[in-house]
Amino acid sequence: MLRDITLGQYYPADSVIHKLDPRVKLFATLIYIVSLFCFKGVAALAVATVFLFGVIKTSKVPFKFMVKGLKAIMILMIITALFNLFLTPGEPIFSFWVLKITKEGVSSAALMAIRLTYLILGTSIMTLTTTPNQLTDGLEKAMAPLAKIGIPVHAIAMMMSIALRFIPILVEETDKIMKAQMARGADFESGNLVKKVKSMIPLLVPLFVSAFRRADDLAMAMEARCYNGGSGRTKMKPLKYEKRDRGAYVLVSGYLVLILLCRTFLPWPM
């Protein structure tokens, strides 16, 4: 269940997308998200589709693997689509009892579903092709100016990268704790809300105790390896723009321009 979430998991492969500078990928993801919420018309949709699938293909991450990440948000998607389907006012094409489906409802539900799917696929490409460390390196570098106004950019980046590393471990641990308590007759499913919240205590206490313990151990292990904050550190994989990164910037900017052009000149039929 929790394990199916592909968001935040790295998929090792040898592709151009993997090699891109994380700053480029952050920028591209941001642009892509913006484009999803401002596009209009079938032509723009086609451009966004071609762009997305082109990038997926180039990334060499199996499409099946990416789709797995969608399962986790399926319910959210269905609810959003249903809301759009039934609650959008307009020209009715089908009605039953108090429920009414309108033409506008159908199109906005479809559009919402597509946007959400593309959004998840787009962002998971970034996390699947970028190691958490690269990602935080990218963020650290991109946010570097903030350090001047006293924000501990390095510490924040380090915390994020460690959090990402420990998510799978803690997910697995949650599973083990749940089983250990179920073996003692714990019931995590039935009962009303109050009972359900109460039933989480036997799960959360061991989880927190273990997380604190791990944090303690990890801090010691980092100190033992001479970690002393961000000053004086060198980088194994320093961020340096290559030719392909500049190319990618141009491509992504071109993509945004194309979407905006479609929006202005070919807004048909949405």
């Binding site: 083990k176 250990a180 073996a183 206490v205 061991p206 273990s210």
Partner: peptide
């Protein structure tokens, strides 16, 4: 409750 299972790490159940 009839087939009791004690897992490897006691830390996973003490709360």
């Amino acid at each position: 409750s009839k087939v009791g299972l004690v897992f490897q790490y006691p830390e996973h159940q003490l709360f």
